[in-house]
Design a protein around this nucleic acid. Structure first.
Length: 581
RNA sequence: GGCCCCGUAGCUCAGGGGAUAGAGCGACCGCCUCCUAAGCGGUAGGUCUCAGGUUCGAAUCCUGACGGGGCCGCCA
């Protein structure tokens, strides 16, 4: 149930009736007609811009259209008043029963209240994290992981068929480096001193990998040429790294549906296949690139390479798929991988990438456009930098300096709830300040506690009611006589609850899970506000001792808010606490 | 030089073309005999970086400046 879209439908019906009567011309575009909560509550419960949007195409005065529309709408039993205001707004006031209906719907549907069928039949692939399997996840990865997971949950809630996918970069030079680094730790495990040369990964996390290699191979790999052991050690170490990454993701509460391997794609010849397909479209050629303007790379020289004509699909320059030595660039397997996703039948692809991949977006879009014949849209959500602060001072992560902050560091200290909420209370395209002390503080400055506290208060009310001998289970509440909700402070909370289904659709459409976090904060604020009004006006307390029917109506309202908080936190992956200690 | 992101209250940030631009923190003044005060109410605080444009209407869309960050062919 979405009261805003219900009322919008009523507005459209009224406009259609006006057209049938000749009061409005036929063939008007109604797509911009909106029914929204007004910025200022004094204007009413809902406002529509219909008259202003239609005035010009209809060739009529906006206020005249609004007057006629108001006359039609006032026949609707849910609408108390329809007043023309300002340049042609139509402000609507709804009956208390309309708002009580929202409370009833939320109780009836529980955490499913607000689910939308907006994405029905739409298959979406959300690729995120995709951290290289060469070490533990760090703070930067954490933001992408949390964002992707929440976006996937949001799209699911809005009715899409969602696949969460991780692309394992297990085929490039970096996994050879990993293998060499692990091999040194293997030598170390065998009592030799490791040579962690420049360019190898020095992290301690490879020490157990070296020991595990010793357990498996004994001393048999010692003093052998690299060619003898590289492939085996690479395979072994890569698997170990992926296990570690899966554990890190599990700590955060992130679960993937599909892990795709670059190595598998490369080995199966699909890169060649993809490039040949593009060649068949006339999009692959041998040529040289113009040097970039401005600051040149130091070793710039003109080279002939195999290039992808990405400019034919909106890119600024063509992009190399082969290096000058004839081997594939990083881009080539990515072409094959995205083609693979297209062939798996998704209607929409979403890539969650770090902001340092900004220069990569246009070529990826070009590939998907070319290989899907323009049918499958690819949206790339760039996750901007996480700036770390400690004691209010910015500090840089450095593996060498030992200030490398892992996901595990953060989650084990702050907990997954705080980590997730903080990282989701910001748009993906704005940089995020992550202040360790503030996040660890667990104080009122931390919005996640504020929202959880609201939920805990609802649970507390229900417990108190039970102690007072008033039944307050969901089944009883669903049958409560909501006519006892009459105070405007109570109906205001119902109005906020009514916005939830609308907010879900807006957030899902914009791929903006942060909106959920901000809405939950507002909803929590409204609940806390109503709670405290009970201090001055005892008739506003949820539990009215000795009056079960009235208590149950009030608790039903609180429970409806709690159900929405619970559902919203569920999308964000945050636990709805039942009590705070 | 080009491309991407950002610029809104002292600070951190919301604001899917709508009315008098909002919240938190900080400052100031109040509220616990009472469902958890991890809470609530109020006051103060604004040239929405600037200049053009589109529109009945722009913080929002477009163009261009300015400022900050990121990226830019044999790294992935």
């Amino acid at each position: 149930m979405n009261l805003f879209s219900d009322i919008r439908a009523a507005v459209l019906d009224a406009l259609a009736a006006m057209q049938a009567e000749g009061a409005l011309p036929a063939g008007l575009d109604m797509s911009n007609v909106a029914v929204e909560p007004p910025r200022d509550a004094a204007h009413g419960d809902m406002a529509t811009n219909a008259a202003m949007v239609l005035a010009k195409p209809a060739g009529q005065q906006p206020r005249a259209i609004a007057e006629a529309l108001a006359a039609k709408l006032s026949a609707d039993p849910r609408i108390v008043t329809a007043e023309v205001a300002g340049p042609g707004f139509l402000n609507l006031r709804l009956t208390p029963d309309a708002w009580r209906g929202v409370v009833a719907a939320a109780l009836g549907q529980g955490r499913d209240f607000g689910r939308s069928d907006m994405g029905r039949g739409v298959k979406v692939n959300v690729e995120f994290v995709s951290a290289n399997p060469t070490g533990p996840m760090h703070v930067g990865h954490t933001r992408g992981a949390v964002f992707g997971d929440a976006l996937a949950a949001l799209l699911d809630f809005a009715g899409h068929e969602v696949t969460r996918e991780y692309y394992i970069n297990d085929a490039g030079a970096q996994v050879d480096v990993l293998a060499r680094s692990a091999y040194e730790r293997y030598r170390e495990a065998n009592g030799l001193s490791p040579e962690i040369r420049e360019g190898l990964y020095p992290g301690d996390y490879l020490i157990p990998v070296g020991e595990a290699l010793k357990a498996k191979y004994g001393a048999s790999l010692l003093d052998r040429p690299e060619a003898d052991w590289l492939a085996d050690v690479r395979e072994f170490a890569t698997q170990r790294m992926m296990e570690m990454i899966r554990q890190d993701l599990a700590l955060l509460g992130v679960r993937m549906d599909v892990f795709s391997s670059e190595r598998a794609i490369t080995a199966s010849g699909r890169v060649e296949e993809a490039i040949e397909t593009l060649r068949g479209m006339g999009l692959i050629y041998e040529g040289t690139l113009e040097p970039p303007k401005g600051k040149l790379p130091e070793d710039w020289e003109e080279r002939e390479q195999t290039l992808f004509r990405s400019t034919a699909h909106g890119d600024d320059v063509d992009r190399p798929v082969k290096k000058s030595d004839g081997s594939w660039t990083y881009f080539a397997p990515d072409i094959a991988y995205h083609w693979d996703k297209v062939k798996r039948g998704y209607d929409q692809l979403i890539d969650i990438l770090g902001a340092d991949h900004g220069g990569y977006v246009k070529r990826l879009k070009a590939v998907v456009s070319a290989l899907s014949d323009g049918r499958v849209p690819l949206e790339v959500k760039l996750i901007q930098l996480v700036k770390l602060y400690k004691n209010g001072e910015p500090f840089k992560m450095s593996k060498r300096a030992g200030t490398f902050v892992t996901l595990r560091d953060v989650v084990e200290q702050a907990g997954p709830d705080v980590t997730r909420f903080v990282m989701l209370t910001r748009k993906n395209d704005a940089a995020l300040d992550f202040d360790f002390d503030k996040v660890l503080e667990q104080s009122k400055d931390n919005p996640v506690f504020y929202v959880q506290y609201a939920h805990a208060r609802v649970c507390s009310v229900i417990r108190k009611a039970a102690e007072a001998g008033i039944a307050a289970d969901d089944a009883t509440l669903a049958g409560a006589d909501l006519a006892h909700l009459a105070h405007d402070a109570e109906l205001s909370l119902a109005r906020k609850i009514a916005e939830w289904p609308r907010l879900v659709e807006i957030s899902a459409r914009g791929h903006e899970p942060h909106r959920v976090a901000f809405y939950l904060y507002e909803l929590a604020s409204d609940l806390h506000g109503l709670w405290n009004r009970g201090n001055e006006d005892t008739s506003l307390r949820f539990v009215q001792e000795g009056n079960a029917p009235v208590s149950q109506a009030k608790i039903a309202l609180a429970r409806a808010a709690g159900v929405v908080i619970s559902a919203g936190l569920g999308i964000l992956g945050v636990t709805p606490a039942e009590e705070m200690r």
